[in-house]
């Protein structure tokens, strides 16, 4: 059972990390977050279902379509729920992004239907045996793709000029504007990228979970927990926290009870907020000049 739990934990953990990285990306560039990240996961799963199952698109095209659709979701959120409140120092964006997520959930209910649907995948029908444990190939694929996507994001940020511009915005938006970086466009890009990662997670998780309009809420919340544990300002911390969270969850569910899973997971979050509020990978906050 241990191997099975390990694989499930790594698969889920990588997805929590991926979605949590989305919180980090928009937080770093704009000090705002998309609290409908969970619904972006759901949107990704629903769009993937539509493209792959209903329309019969091949996998790669489905992936592309899902990424584009969820990136657009992020752009819409930024335009409707964040930009109007960006200059005011209020937390209006927080409620507005939650509102957008709730609306998205309702739209999905009206179009996709209330009921959960299975996402058929050849990789999630027959388990393979690894050291005597039955594991779905999809569960092995998920963390690999998840890590590849996170690696892609890191490459983008540190090796491409556009990524370096976003990094500059994250470090000091005022100075970045003085360089000629169009700040609203940078923030919008961050929202698109963040939602695209969530959408990719939705696509990858769809064969393992069922696709349903409400599937995103708890994933979004857990990913937020992961972002807090890892440190909102630390991509590396979030990666580690994602895997830790997934593993804890999986092993508690396996050895204790599924009911205890959330208790332990969120207790860790509260403990972290008390002991090390800036997160695993974050630096103790100092005032920026």
């Amino acid at each position: 059972m241990g191997i099975q739990l390990l694989v499930t934990g790594l698969a889920l953990g990588s997805m929590y990390g991926l979605v949590a990285l989305g919180y980090h990306i928009t937080w770093a560039t704009s000090r705002t977050m998309n609290f409908s990240q969970g619904q972006a996961v759901m949107a990704g799963a629903v769009v993937a279902y539509g493209l792959h199952v209903a329309l019969g698109w091949p996998f790669l095209l489905t992936l592309l379509g899902t990424l584009v659709a969820s990136a657009l979701f992020g752009v819409v959120i930024e335009r409707l729920a964040v930009r109007p409140f960006f200059r005011s120092a209020s937390l209006a964006w927080l409620l507005a992004t939650i509102a957008c997520g709730t609306i998205a959930e309702n739209v999905a209910m009206l179009t996709f239907g209330k009921d959960a649907r299975a996402f058929p995948s050849a990789l999630a029908t027959r388990p393979v045996l690894i050291a005597g444990a039955g594991v779905y190939p999809q569960e092995l694929l998920v963390p690999v793709v998840g890590l590849a996507l996170m690696g892609g994001v890191q490459f983008f940020y540190h090796r491409t000029f556009y990524g370096k511009q976003l990094k500059a915005v994250a470090y000091n938006p005022e100075a970045a504007g003085l360089m000629g970086i169009h700040i609203p466009r940078a923030v919008m890009t961050a929202y698109a990228l963040s939602a695209a990662l969530a959408g990719a997670a939705g696509l990858l998780l769809a064969p393992l979970l069922n696709v349903a309009p409400t599937m995103g809420t708890i994933i979004g919340l857990k990913a937020f927990a992961v972002a807090i544990i890892g440190g909102l300002d630390s991509a590396g911390g979030i990666l580690i926290a994602g895997f830790l969270y997934g593993l804890i969850e999986s092993f508690v569910a396996g050895y204790v009870s599924t009911g205890a899973r959330e208790i332990v997971g969120f207790a860790v979050v509260i403990a972290m907020l008390v002991v090390r509020p800036w997160g695993l990978g974050g630096a103790r906050p100092t005032r920026r000049v």
Partner: peptide, 18 residues
């Protein structure tokens, strides 16, 4: 307003962005 987490070269490149 230096971007302290980026190299000198990248700072200069960002300066020429406009």
């Amino acid at each position: 307003g230096i971007f302290a987490d980026q190299t000198v070269r990248d700072n200069l490149m960002l300066g020429a962005l406009s």
